[in-house]
Amino acid sequence: MVNPSKIDEGGVQYSIGQFDGKTVTYDFNKILIYLDAKGKLLFGKEFKIYDDDHRVIFKLCNYFIKDEEMCAKNGIDPNKGILLTGPVGCGKTSLMRLLRHIVPLQRPYQVIPARNIVFGFNHIGYKIIEDYGDGQFYCFDDLGVEPIGRHYGKNCNVMGEVLLSRYDLFLKANLKTHATTNLSAQELEDMYGNRVRSRMRQLFNLVAFDENTNDKRK
């Protein structure tokens, strides 16, 4: 039997809780130890988990392990995706790349920079929007700072169209979408318009870093 409370990384087995054969009782402190180790493997030995980020990480962990009680306390709907916001360099992308590893039995999502999708549109056109309206799970990284798409002389707000497609998938098949952004709610509305912003409220749980969080890349 697979034990989802044990994860092997780099020849070391990490325990992130207790498994009774049916359910896992997770231990946040043990999860932090695992995330620190996995982060160093993914991003290099300089990676570290900062104490100031524990609040955000705790919310995200409860979401990914599907702790319904703690999600309810934090106003998180486990059926929606995550929109992780915060200032440049606070670690949003790293966390979204990292946290999917604490639930190895769950279906993984791909982290895709929003600008790459726009570049794809510029090259092959509207097929790229269809491609991301498929049955896969995605996390769109750096949402809202990508350029406007342009294909054969026609402009297109590519990510706005992709989000509308993802919203339709959410309604039809409860297919989750995640994203990270540096922008505020008003800036997102300015970028995508009121209709898309309204859909985003239904697609995403908003989880935010403090606006004064330091740039960890400096």
Rank of each mutant, 00 (worst) to 15 (best):
A173P: 00
P87S: 11
K45R: 10
K66P: 01
H178P: 03
T181R: 01
C61A: 14
I16Y: 02
C90G: 01
I16A: 04
D190S: 11
R55H: 09
V12A: 09
G44A: 07
Q18G: 01
G144R: 13
K154F: 03
T85Y: 09
I129D: 03
R201Y: 02
R195L: 08
I102D: 02
V2Y: 04
G39Q: 15
E46I: 01
D210K: 08
F121Y: 15
N182P: 02
F47L: 02
V145L: 08
I49A: 11
I117A: 04
K80E: 11
N212W: 06
G120S: 14
A114W: 03
C71I: 12
G153T: 14
S15A: 12
D36L: 09
A72M: 10
L164D: 08
G125S: 07
I65N: 06
P147G: 13
G89Q: 05
I7C: 04
D27E: 06
G160V: 02
T181S: 14
L143Q: 09
D8S: 12
M159E: 00
L188N: 10
L164A: 12
F121K: 05
D77C: 05
E68F: 05
L83N: 03
L188F: 07
P104V: 10
G135T: 11
D134Y: 02
G193Q: 07
Q202E: 15
L98D: 03
G21D: 14
Y50Q: 10
H123T: 13
M1F: 06
N214E: 14
K30E: 06
D67V: 08
F119L: 11
N74E: 13
G193T: 15
K80S: 07
K38Y: 12
S94F: 14
P78A: 07
D134S: 13
K154I: 07
N122L: 00
G149V: 15
V158L: 00
F47M: 04
I31K: 06
L163P: 01
I65E: 05
T177E: 04
D142Y: 14
D77L: 06
L143T: 03
V145T: 15
G81A: 08
D53Y: 14
N116G: 00
A37K: 12
L98H: 09
A208E: 13
Q106G: 03
E146W: 06
I33M: 10
N182V: 03
D27Q: 05
P113M: 05
A37M: 06
V24C: 08
S15R: 09
Y109E: 07
I76K: 09
R115M: 08
V103L: 01
D142M: 12
E9C: 08
Y126C: 00
Y132W: 04
D20H: 09
E161F: 01
Y26T: 03
P113I: 03
N74Y: 14
D53E: 13
K218W: 07
G10S: 14
Q13A: 12
E211P: 00
V162C: 06
F137K: 10
N212V: 05
G44L: 09
K172C: 02
G91H: 12
R100E: 11
I49S: 09
A208I: 02
D190E: 14
E189V: 08
P147F: 13
T177N: 02
Q13K: 07
G149L: 13
F170K: 14
I112N: 06
K6N: 05
N74R: 11
L42M: 15
T25D: 08
V56Q: 02
K92I: 13
R55Y: 06
D20T: 04
I129V: 15
L95I: 15
V158I: 04
E187W: 03
Q106R: 11
D142N: 15
R195D: 11
N62H: 10
